[in-house]
Amino acid sequence: MSEEYKAKVFKSGNSLALRLPKALGLEEGAEMRLREEHGRFTFEPVDAPKRKIDLTGIAGSMPWLKPLPREDFDDSPRDWHLLDRDG
Rank of each mutant, 00 (worst) to 15 (best):
G29F: 02
E37R: 12
R70W: 02
R35A: 13
Y5F: 15
L26Y: 09
E36R: 11
R70E: 09
T42R: 15
P69E: 03
P21Q: 09
S61D: 15
K8V: 13
R85Y: 02
E3G: 05
S61K: 15
E37T: 12
G57V: 05
G39R: 07
S2Y: 04
P67T: 11
M62F: 15
S2F: 08
F41I: 15
G57P: 04
K8G: 00
L55W: 09
D84S: 04
V46I: 11
I53D: 01
A17N: 10
L82F: 07
I58N: 02
W64V: 12
T42I: 05
A7M: 07
L68W: 03
L83P: 00
F41L: 15
R78S: 09
R33K: 14
P63C: 03
E27F: 06
K11Q: 11
R70T: 06
F10K: 12
W80E: 11
L20N: 02
M32A: 02
E27D: 11
G39K: 07
F73I: 04
D54C: 06
E27N: 12
D74R: 15
D79I: 02
L24N: 03
L20Y: 03
W80R: 05
K11N: 07
P63S: 07
D47I: 10
F41S: 05
R85M: 01
F73D: 01
D75V: 07
P45G: 11
G13Y: 08
M1P: 06
E4A: 08
R19F: 00
R33H: 09
K52E: 14
P77H: 03
D47P: 08
G60Q: 04
L34F: 15
A30D: 15
T42Q: 11
T42S: 14
P21Y: 03
S15K: 14
M1E: 12
D84C: 01
R40C: 04
K50G: 02
L34R: 01
R40A: 12
E3Q: 14
R35W: 12
H38R: 15
T42K: 08
A30F: 00
K6E: 13
E28Q: 08
P77M: 07
L55P: 00
P69H: 03
G57Y: 05
I53V: 15
K50I: 10
W80L: 13
P63Q: 05
F10Y: 14
E36W: 03
G13S: 09
R51D: 10
G13W: 08
S2C: 03
P49A: 08
P69V: 01
W64N: 11
E36T: 06
R85V: 11
W64C: 04
K8E: 09
G87N: 14
V9W: 13
D86V: 10
D74M: 11
G87H: 11
V46C: 02
P77I: 06
K8H: 06
E44A: 15
R40H: 06
L20R: 05
S15C: 10
S2Q: 12
L24W: 10
E44H: 06
L55Q: 05
A7Y: 03
E71C: 00
G60C: 03
L82T: 08
P63M: 04
E37F: 12
E36V: 13
P69I: 00
R85N: 04
R19E: 14
M32L: 15
D54I: 05
M32Y: 04
K66N: 04
K50L: 12
S12Q: 12
P69F: 00
D72M: 15
W64Y: 09
G13A: 08
